[in-house]
Write a protein that binds this DNA or RNA. Structure first.
Lengths: 263, 263
DNA sequence: CAGTGGTCTAGACCACAAC
DNA sequence: TTGTGGTCTAGACCACTGA
């Protein structure tokens, strides 16, 4: 067993035993170096392993903190866009009636549009667009998802209220639909990738843990072009998509009583 | 710009320019150390960055090889289990009639069941079970998916032919259904994680790139318990799940002509 | 301002796997 | 046998940032 493996194992066991609880810090680097007679590199390699596993997260000035692992949420995937009583699209992970909270304060900025959002909206990379950004989770849990909503500049021109702080009853989607783009239709794109540093920071997750990216693009019924894109980033250890499958008509089932053996 | 960033940028540009083509090796470590006057650590950090991006993959003895990036496949997700003319479940990524190939030779082993498969089949971890393992891709492309099929030991007892090399017409699923478990019903579970070293090796991908894990569990109509689980691992840069969404009945659309503003 | 993160040097040894 | 991967030592300096 390698030295860093031994250090990592000891720390992992201690965390799993509860010697260190969520929010506690594990011993800092100089102490681990002394305790194991190891170089800083070896200690850092050990802690990096725990970080990749999502057990701990380094926090500047405080030390390496044991992460609150809230467990995996099963996200039931259907084919429906659900909207809550205010008209906002419900998080796919939300159970009916379940209270959700916002972490920090939601942002509303006009920023240079990154490659992925530009691709989804059919824009040039580097142009600026309106972004709404918020971090949410089920009530009482650590951050679950980072949600960015991008609105196409043309659509903002059609429905200026979508750029306001208060988008009015039913939210920005109703404004877009009223402005001649309704009824919107949506497609969903799911990818796997590593988080950008700012995404990881906002989600309280290590950059070495992958995320699931769920992008939903709303297309105008009038122009048949994308008008809004919502990109949802979820830490990989927090989510599992679940779907009940049906048997396709071609997926025959022959039971043993019906034994005519047709090719 | 950090030294390793500069090295990484130069190599990235050279690869994108086509100076190094898929299958070529980039200059090896001693040469890069000399060319940039950098330590091995700095050079390795630079190459590690390219590896994370999926541009290159280290191959023992050959060097660091430029990866054949076959691009992302859009996997249209529906709710149906499709089976081909032989009765086998079709890869979700397969287009109708598209030829697929197998990489290496399919394996059929009785091995200790890992945690994930045990969980899906409701077995104790460490017990042994029958695994069929194969790596497939669309014809002519590098490995796309690693598919492991696990069959519950009880189900093997019910339908011994599923453990044979030739599982007969319609494949193992027909054998299970004939043995009294039909019609099977399936659920699908999608997760995000980092690959195990052997998974990464079989898929020709770096261990620092995430994978999408798509698990399909078949449940017996008779016992109402899982009888088979198929776990499909796909490199994160090769796949995108796509779903067309429908509007839920509650997701009202009010057009501007119908302006009665009902709360 | 302490304790991380990140970068960097200049060495070392062993394992592994493909050519 | 060669060129990786991986591990390790023993240093160094700077940046960041939250208590």
């Amino acid at each position: 067993m390698r030295r860093y493996e031994r250090i990592a194992r000891d720390l992992r066991d201690a965390i799993n035993r509860g010697d260190y609880r969520p929010g506690d810090t594990i011993p800092h680097e100089p102490e681990l170096m002394e305790r194991y007679g190891a170089s800083r590199h070896a200690v850092r390699t050990a802690v990096a392993a725990l970080t990749r596993e999502g057990l701990v997260i380094p926090v500047r000035r405080r030390g390496t903190v044991v992460r609150d692992r809230a467990g995996r949420r099963r996200v039931r995937r259907g084919l429906l866009v659900r909207r809550d009583h205010r008209g906002y699209v419900m998080p796919a992970a939300a159970r009916e009636g379940e209270p959700w909270q916002v972490h920090g304060r939601p942002r509303r900025d006009t920023v240079p549009i990154p490659a992925r959002a530009a691709e989804l909206l059919g824009l040039e990379e580097g142009a600026t667009a309106l972004r709404r950004r918020r971090v949410t989770s089920p009530e009482g849990e650590p951050p679950f998802q980072l949600v960015d909503t991008w609105i196409h500049p043309d659509a903002v021109a059609d429905a200026p209220q979508v750029a306001e702080r208060d988008t009015g009853p039913g939210g920005y989607l109703d404004r877009l639909e009223e402005a001649g783009h309704g009824p919107l239709s949506w497609a969903e794109y799911i990818r796997v990738r590593m988080p950008a540093p700012d995404e990881a920071r906002l989600l309280g997750m290590p950059t070495s843990m992958p995320v699931m990216e769920i992008a939903r693009v709303g297309t105008s019924a009038r122009t048949n072009a994308p008008v809004e894109a919502t990109i949802c980033i979820i830490p990989g250890d927090r989510v599992e998509l679940v779907t009940q499958l049906r048997r396709a008509p071609s997926a025959r089932w022959r039971d043993r009583s019906a034994h005519h053996d047709g090719s």
